[in-house]
Every structure is written in C-alpha cells, then in structure tokens.
Amino acid sequence: MSRIATVFGATGLQGGSVVKQLLKDGVFKPRAVTRNPNSDGAKELAKLGADVVAGDLADFDSVKKAVAGSEVVFAVTIPGHGKTNRELEQGKFIIDAAKAANVKYLVWSSTESVVGVSGGKYQCISLDDKSELDNYLRSTGIPHSILLTGGFLENWTRPYVPSLIRSHHLTFAARWVQGSIAILSWIDRDMGLSVSTLFNAYANGKLDEINGEDYVVLCAKLPIEDWYKIIETTLGKKVNVTWLPTVNYKMFDDMYDSVKEFEWYKGRQVPDPGLVALGVKFGTLEDFVRTEIKPYLGL
C-alpha cells in the first residue's frame, strides 16, 4: 500500500514544487489537492504520476476527505481561496482535519508576522494569519515542522508582476524600500526539496529531531540593492531600479515598510543550518538569474 502525502495548493508554486519533488523521491505517493482537477496544471501533475483530488480549503468536509488516509501532509493556505479570504480559517480546517485523521507528521508553510515583528505598527492579514496558525498547530500536538518563507524570487519573472521591462537596459519597478534587508526564497527549487527532506527524515526515524522545529527556507538575506547588483553582474547588463513609494494597497505597503523598519528573521542564519544538516542544498541568486531571469528575458 502506498504511503500517502497529501499536498495542498498542488497547482500553485509551493504545492507544485512539493508534488514534483515527492514524485522524484518515490518514498511517498503525492495526493495533489486542487479546487479544479480538470485544470491544465492538475492534468499535468496527473500525467507525472500524482493522484489528483478535488479539495476546497474553504470547505471543511472537502478538506477532511482530502486528508483521510494520508500519513503525512504539506499544508499551505491561499489568499482569497474559495468562500473565504481568511487564511486563518483555511489553516484551521487543514490542521483540524489532520488531527482527526491521525496524520503522523505535518509540514506547514508559514512566514514572518508583520504585526508581530512591528509590534502592531504594521499589519498584513495574509501573512499574520499564517503566523497565528503556527501557534494553533503547536497547540494540537500534531507532530510537525514549520517552514518560514521570504520574498519569492519567482516574483521577478511572473508575467503579472510588473517588475521587469524588456529594453536595452533592464528596468525594475520595485516596491522594496531602499536599505531593506531582503529575505529571498527560491520556492520552485527549494520548497519541494525542503519538504521532501523533512518527510524522508520522518520516514527514517528522525521525527524526534525535527518535530516542533521551524526552519527558514531562504537562499539569501542581503540588502535589496545587492540583489539588483547580482542581476546586473550575472547578466552583464545595466540594471535600473525605480523605487515605488506605494502600490496603493495598504496590506502590501505595510509588508514592505515593515521589512525596512524591522528586519525579518533577525538573527537567523541563511541558509538554515538545520535543513543543511539534513542534506538540503539551497540554490543561489546567481543560479536563479542564469536559469530563470535570463531565459525569461530572452537573453
């Protein structure tokens, strides 16, 4: 009988990374949860060998069905998913379902709390909900680990994020505040690898070592200006940056302003020594520029 790993957000960036890595490893059979099993992304996962099932994070019964019979779970919440915009409710549905199903180990994707790091000066409900769920998860007694993410490098190549303009020079429209210490995650490469490594550690009898621990899934922590210099140096092309004072969306403005004023993950070593000790080899910013940004620009 297959050892089932239920993966939420399977057609998204995080969940998709996890499903693909689990298929490569072959230890756990990924059960890919998506609202629409007939979507192109879901069909692609099915072709790769995943068991694709329907599941709506806004519907507790749906979540319970998705979790039933699974040994391990990867949990991530999604802004504006289904009937509710609150990730707090989504996360509690997953955690409660996992508890009821006697899931043996759960890996939860979270992040820094904006309201927490700023002492209430700033808030970002999406991120703050995730952080609040950290404590809820701990209170249940479910064996778990928490993976903490930063700014997604993929945002520099997503077509709906207006960060790159193709021209003789590269021009970035950046909401980051100059002088911020940027915390950057290469999700597609490092999230799946980190989750799979933790699942394998559990499977190999190392649950006591990883249970209750949190790890930062960051490939870099550096002044935001240095990230743009790395792009410039790696591509060998001049980079220009327009620093935006606002995106006229308070939640996002608060998030970026908090990063500048209150360093996120202060004191945390990058890459995370706990994940490195388990065998995770993180990607580099230079590799991301070469393998993702360069082809995206057609260079």
Results as ranks from 00 to 15, higher is better:
residue 106 L to H: 08
residue 22 L to F: 06
residue 11 T to C: 09
residue 97 A to Y: 09
residue 21 Q to F: 01
residue 41 G to T: 02
residue 21 Q to V: 12
residue 100 A to W: 01
residue 109 S to L: 03
residue 27 V to N: 11
residue 17 S to L: 13
residue 65 K to W: 00
residue 98 A to E: 01
residue 23 L to F: 01
residue 83 K to E: 12
residue 85 N to Y: 12
residue 39 S to N: 02
residue 25 D to T: 12
residue 9 G to P: 10
residue 22 L to D: 02
residue 10 A to M: 07
residue 68 A to N: 15
residue 85 N to F: 14
residue 48 L to G: 00
residue 94 I to K: 04
residue 40 D to R: 10
residue 103 V to T: 15
residue 79 P to M: 08
residue 35 R to T: 13
residue 17 S to E: 09
residue 13 L to N: 15
residue 109 S to R: 07
residue 89 E to I: 11
residue 98 A to M: 00
residue 74 F to R: 06
residue 34 T to H: 06
residue 92 K to W: 11
residue 79 P to N: 08
residue 10 A to Y: 13
residue 35 R to A: 06
residue 95 I to C: 09
residue 41 G to L: 08
residue 87 E to I: 02
residue 96 D to V: 14
residue 53 V to M: 03
residue 49 G to V: 04
residue 53 V to W: 10
residue 42 A to H: 06
residue 51 D to G: 04
residue 68 A to P: 09
residue 54 A to N: 02
residue 110 S to Y: 10
residue 43 K to W: 07
residue 108 W to M: 15
residue 13 L to D: 14
residue 78 I to T: 14
residue 98 A to G: 13
residue 78 I to G: 00
residue 89 E to C: 00
residue 31 R to E: 04
residue 99 K to L: 06
residue 28 F to H: 13
residue 16 G to N: 12
residue 39 S to F: 05
residue 93 F to D: 14
residue 59 D to I: 02
residue 19 V to K: 03
residue 57 L to S: 04
residue 20 K to A: 14
residue 76 V to F: 03
residue 41 G to W: 01
residue 76 V to R: 04
residue 15 G to F: 01
residue 80 G to E: 07
residue 92 K to F: 13
residue 63 V to M: 11
residue 77 T to P: 08
residue 9 G to R: 03
residue 16 G to Y: 04
residue 108 W to P: 05
residue 16 G to K: 07
residue 36 N to G: 04
residue 37 P to H: 02
residue 39 S to I: 02
residue 55 G to R: 05
residue 68 A to H: 12
residue 50 A to H: 04
residue 89 E to H: 02
residue 101 A to E: 12
residue 86 R to A: 14
residue 89 E to D: 12
residue 83 K to T: 14
residue 26 G to C: 10
residue 67 V to E: 01
residue 81 H to Q: 14
residue 9 G to Q: 11
residue 77 T to Y: 06
residue 35 R to H: 03
residue 65 K to R: 10
residue 16 G to D: 09
residue 34 T to K: 08
residue 101 A to T: 02
residue 50 A to K: 06
residue 27 V to R: 13
residue 92 K to E: 13
residue 51 D to N: 13
residue 87 E to H: 00
residue 61 D to W: 01
residue 86 R to M: 07
residue 83 K to W: 04
residue 96 D to S: 07
residue 91 G to V: 02
residue 84 T to R: 00
residue 64 K to A: 11
residue 99 K to N: 03
residue 80 G to Q: 06
residue 57 L to H: 10
residue 53 V to N: 00
residue 27 V to P: 05
